[in-house]
Design a protein around this nucleic acid. Structure first.
Lengths: 173, 173
DNA sequence: GGGATGTTTCGGAAATAACTGAAAACACAA
DNA sequence: TTGTGTTTTCAGTTATTTCCGAAACATCCC
């Protein structure tokens, strides 16, 4: 029979690896997803070196992705008294994680799309040909929808956990 | 002064190009996004050859991405009487587009994540060590949330336009 | 059959994204 | 100021994804 600790390690490694694969499908890179998985399941904050060793990756790679995760708000930097080294700890609250991701994806994906649509809309304003009209109508539909999505994202991202769940239950209970 | 038609073509080209760039950030490839943009703004269905010519891409590339878009439910294949050639036309209704994307992303991104989490959860069931408990708690939170997201996606994807908007207005008006 | 038309597949080329390793920059204490 | 531990940057390499071009396949018509 296998020891519990060994089994745990195995399962955790599998989680980290799989989460990395998932990451690539989510449009974020493998390493970043792996680091996130690693830290979400580590009881203690980890240093860059520990992450490097655990995942067998270079310092540059570890550093870049740790800092990216911090900029997403998914990791926090913590320091220990008397030590200069930086340690990283993951946000564990799922609602908080979700909010951060929504916020960031809005900024990176929705807002730029909105800019494109609005500029296309502006440029074709007042066109009278059938083709012009049709194009503009389609831009308008898209713009309205994306603008709406943008607003929704903001609302969701600024909702506290309790409120969100309450709302969700009312809708989808 | 520039003719309206010329201006329109220019704006549309820019839309197609930009939408392609956006696509790469959304985790779908440039060509696929460009074809989608092209067809959403084309009054008539287009053939593979027309798409190839307009975007200056190879037949293989055009073919693959057109079929992928069909599998996403974002394009329909239409045929003309007496012609063997296939033409493609885009779904234009934004709510419909949104539903299809939600559906597909759920299938590709949420469901596999759920599998991973559930299997990790199962494997660590009943562990008594502190580490095992902590790991399991985190898996459980994630699993619950992702399962919830899965359910939400299904509901949203099966909602008719009117119902969804009505709901949205009540929430975020 | 065999030519014409259109679709699908696929090996290798090209483009893009991710990663490494090492050096440079930085921060701070002695 | 110099030494030591740590973070950051980046040019070059490697891996992955995307794309091309051409051949194979399928279908219809004569």
């Amino acid at each position: 029979m296998k020891g519990e600790a060994a089994k745990l390690k195995e399962t955790r490694d599998r989680f980290v690896a799989q989460w990395g694969v998932m990451g690539t499908h989510w449009g974020i890179n493998r390493t970043m997803a792996q680091i996130h998985a690693l830290l979400m399941t580590n009881p203690e904050p980890m240093s860059t070196d520990e992450v490097m060793e655990e995942l067998r990756i270079s310092r540059g790679n570890a550093h870049t992705n740790l800092k990216d995760l911090v900029s997403w708000g998914l990791l926090r930097i913590v320091t220990r008294k008397g030590e200069r080294k930086e340690y990283f700890e993951a946000e564990l609250d799922v609602w908080e994680i979700f909010r951060r991701i929504v916020q960031e994806r809005k900024r990176r994906e929705i807002d730029p799309a909105l800019d494109v649509l609005q500029s296309c809309l502006a440029e074709t304003k007042g066109m009278k040909t059938a083709g012009g009209r049709a194009f503009q109508d389609q831009m308008k539909s898209l713009e309205e929808f994306v603008r709406f999505a943008s607003k929704m994202s903001d609302r969701v991202a600024s909702m506290p956990h309790g409120k969100a769940m309450q709302l969700a239950m009312k809708l989808f209970g």
